[in-house]
Design a protein around this nucleic acid. Structure first.
Lengths: 239, 239
DNA sequence: CGCTCATTTGATCTATTTCAAGTTGTGTGG
DNA sequence: CCACACAACTTGAAATAGATCAAATGAGCG
């Protein structure tokens, strides 16, 4: 099993053997977390940095009305905020979507590694900038894209992110997101998500079925979404 | 004229004289930028960090359709991303909304100050976390709040942020945002913004007129917005 | 004064939500 | 292998928030 955290960071900055060794040492002991378990909750005092090694999770907020907004999807290799420990309380929660292998890294250890290994620090900072860019893309989606564009855009994003850590098939991806969850992420109703998915299927762009995304016509999907991968900052990649 | 960048950072971490002296040295030479001028554009190679010392600006993206999404409002004391220089290109643009005094800080100088003055580094990191929290709040607004809640929520946010740098009046704030701009920020039409503003006015919660926000009934505004200031992480503040 | 730009109002239209039933799929125990 | 329970998905009809189109009003400015 390759270490997808390393894989992801390697995409942002070249890492030498010692960089990798340092990262492997910090991520050696993941623990298994079951589905729908809150890793941390809004209002909690943040602790160590954690990294999803396997499985999926999401950041979310619950509103007074009880509705929920998903703020980000975390896939293998993704981490929570680097400096999260500086805050008095979390302003959102993080929950697993599938069973997941999660590693927690002590702030001190992380700081030491970053001080000793500039390439690791660089990659971590870039990862954070990409997370921010992703949030901006989400704001843009919510504010100015139609529902079908929004769905298509999210699928493009997830597919590319997954490709960068090599967990995709030819034109497919294991995507364990229910329609309710997608609705909570995209500011829609699950009912409407369902109709939009059908529309995308009929259009021959993509199919989402039983936890699996099939991108039948990538060009069409990108066109529908108006997708521009700039915000993922993948430029230096070779793949 | 107090230095509002220092004022803002002081809210996140106590700063001693030398911390402040270092910050003052880096922000001594602002330049005047006129209204509606792009400080940096999507696709540009990022340069030095810059800080708005006076006036307002916004981050935004333009979609293929020509519509625009405002991603954040920058008020005096606000800075662009700390590590922005690590990226190959900007994924969004930043434009002034009013004439503004803007300072650019060389990456090297900033890094040196942060290395020498841990309190400054701490405050800068917290500022970045607050920016992220703010983006999450915007995503939540766009996804799950009605238009009136969205407008009210944004006004609450701006008022509190402005209060932290002491540029507010009793229950008022100089807010140079046109209805078109607000529409671009909140994913609405300017026509609809107009109606919502009227509704808030009639409800006796707030009035936005000629660049001035009057919060006639703060409690009511907060109630309408369902506002919780947690994401601004102001807990340590005394004010 | 006459121009321009921002705001306001009205009338119509449409995307999306809401509510309410079904249908399909999946795992479990008999 | 079947029956049952439970979750996820699908579809239709009615209601509504917000967009769009069009036009009027008002303020600031050379």
């Amino acid at each position: 099993m390759t270490n997808l955290f390393v894989e992801k960071l390697r995409g942002y900055s070249p890492l030498d053997e010692e960089d990798v060794a340092g990262l492997l040492a910090l991520t050696a002991r993941p623990r298994l977390v079951k589905t729908r378990h809150d890793l941390i909750r809004e209002g909690d005092r943040p602790g160590p940095v954690f990294v999803i090694m396997e499985g999926w999770a999401c950041r979310y907020k619950v509103l007074p009305s009880g509705t929920r907004q998903v703020l980000a999807f975390l896939m293998p290799g993704d981490a929570c905020d680097l400096h999260i420990g500086l805050l008095a309380e979390m302003d959102h929660s993080i929950q697993t979507i599938t069973p997941a292998q999660v590693v927690t890294i002590d702030r001190v250890d992380m700081d030491r590694l970053m001080a000793q290994r500039p390439a690791v620090a660089r990659a971590m900072y870039i990862a954070q900038l990409v997370d921010e860019g992703t949030m901006r893309a989400w704001i843009t989606s919510m504010g100015r894209r139609t529902s079908i564009e929004r769905v298509a855009h999210l699928m493009c994003e997830l597919y590319l992110r997954a490709r960068d850590i090599a967990i995709t098939g030819e034109q497919s991806l294991a995507l364990p997101l229910s329609q309710v969850l997608l609705a909570d992420a995209l500011g829609m109703t699950s009912v409407h998500i369902n109709r939009v998915l059908k529309e995308l299927r009929v259009a021959g762009a993509m199919t989402l079925n039983r936890g699996s995304l099939e991108v039948s016509d990538p060009a069409k999907l990108v066109r529908i979404a108006g997708f521009d991968d700039g915000y993922l900052h993948r430029r230096s990649r070779t793949a």
